[in-house]
Amino acid sequence: MNFETIVNLFSLHGYIILFGVLTIELIGAPTPGETILTYCGYLVFRGQLNYFLTIIIATSGVVLGITASYLLGILLNETIIDKYGKYIHLGSKNLEKVSNWFDKYGNHLLIFAYFIPGIRHITGYFSGITRISFSRFAANAYIGALIWTTTFITLGRLLGYNWNIVHTHLKDYFIISGITLIIGIFIYYKYTLKNKNTK
């Protein structure tokens, strides 16, 4: 679904479209989340939307979407990973190791992965597949959802008529920062695992 189509629907259905689009994005649909949120911030700037209500509705849509992907991840674990995981070195033993690591260190990923297109779409699934506890998943994923939606809605509100600058400058900054964080977590994980194996 392209941005122009979403804008046209938004003019007719407003908050309902915001909620629905963000829900299906976090389930895996290729929708421009940051663009939508920043545009909503611009509409807040123009007085067409309420700032706090927009954040609440946007965050609720994200929460519903990533929770659905988490539950689907649990289903995938039972039906697919158990059967075919060994072919991609993700058998039951390796899956348990990944699950333990993700349960211990994945909170940072769950919070900041929203800022990386493509990554935020799989963190819910991976959380379910690796069976991290729902309480830990929810605590971090839901906080991340609030931070992500508030950040881009606020940016759109502050930038006003220049709201689309996000897509030429700031978006790249967030992506680079997020990728750097994930690489750092991965290196730390590999280093820690290597040290444990040498002891």
Score class of each variant (00 low, 15 high):
residue 82 D to E: 11
residue 63 V to W: 10
residue 90 L to F: 13
residue 98 V to S: 12
residue 59 T to F: 05
residue 68 A to G: 07
residue 77 N to W: 05
residue 64 L to G: 00
residue 83 K to I: 07
residue 73 G to Q: 12
residue 65 G to Y: 02
residue 67 T to D: 00
residue 100 N to Y: 13
residue 74 I to E: 06
residue 89 H to N: 12
residue 70 Y to V: 00
residue 87 Y to S: 05
residue 82 D to F: 03
residue 72 L to W: 10
residue 93 K to A: 08
residue 72 L to V: 15
residue 80 I to V: 14
residue 93 K to L: 09
residue 91 G to R: 06
residue 62 V to S: 14
residue 79 T to L: 10
residue 64 L to K: 00
residue 100 N to A: 13
residue 68 A to N: 08
residue 93 K to D: 10
residue 70 Y to W: 09
residue 70 Y to I: 00
residue 92 S to L: 10
residue 100 N to I: 12
residue 84 Y to K: 10
residue 94 N to S: 09
residue 89 H to K: 13
residue 96 E to V: 06
residue 71 L to P: 01
residue 65 G to S: 10
residue 77 N to Q: 14
residue 71 L to M: 14
residue 81 I to R: 05
residue 67 T to P: 01
residue 63 V to Y: 01
residue 83 K to E: 06
residue 91 G to M: 04
residue 71 L to T: 09
residue 88 I to A: 08
residue 86 K to C: 02
residue 64 L to Q: 00
residue 96 E to R: 12
residue 93 K to P: 03
residue 100 N to L: 11
residue 80 I to M: 12
residue 87 Y to H: 12
residue 73 G to L: 07
residue 84 Y to T: 02
residue 99 S to G: 15
residue 95 L to E: 06
residue 77 N to A: 07
residue 64 L to M: 11
residue 87 Y to T: 05
residue 99 S to E: 07
residue 67 T to S: 08
residue 78 E to P: 04
residue 83 K to T: 08
residue 95 L to Y: 03
residue 76 L to H: 03
residue 59 T to R: 04
residue 82 D to K: 14
residue 72 L to I: 15
residue 60 S to W: 08
residue 59 T to K: 03
residue 71 L to C: 09
residue 97 K to M: 11
residue 70 Y to P: 00
residue 83 K to S: 06
residue 69 S to T: 11
residue 87 Y to P: 03
residue 95 L to H: 07
residue 99 S to M: 11
residue 69 S to Q: 10
residue 100 N to M: 09
residue 60 S to A: 15
residue 81 I to F: 04
residue 83 K to W: 01
residue 86 K to E: 08
residue 95 L to S: 11
residue 67 T to R: 00
residue 85 G to R: 05
residue 79 T to P: 01
residue 95 L to C: 10
residue 61 G to Q: 06
residue 61 G to T: 10
residue 81 I to K: 06
residue 71 L to H: 05
residue 91 G to Q: 08
residue 83 K to F: 04
residue 78 E to H: 15
residue 88 I to F: 13
residue 96 E to S: 12
residue 69 S to W: 03
residue 84 Y to W: 08
residue 66 I to T: 13
residue 88 I to Y: 09
residue 72 L to E: 04
residue 87 Y to R: 10
residue 67 T to L: 03
residue 64 L to N: 00
residue 84 Y to Q: 03
residue 90 L to R: 06
residue 97 K to F: 09
residue 59 T to G: 05
residue 95 L to D: 04
residue 94 N to H: 12
residue 88 I to Q: 05
residue 97 K to G: 07
residue 70 Y to G: 00
residue 87 Y to D: 02
residue 91 G to P: 05
residue 87 Y to E: 07
residue 80 I to W: 12
residue 87 Y to N: 09
residue 78 E to N: 15
residue 99 S to H: 07
residue 73 G to S: 13
residue 75 L to D: 12
residue 70 Y to E: 01
residue 77 N to Y: 13
residue 97 K to T: 09
residue 96 E to W: 05
residue 73 G to H: 12
residue 77 N to M: 11
residue 98 V to C: 10
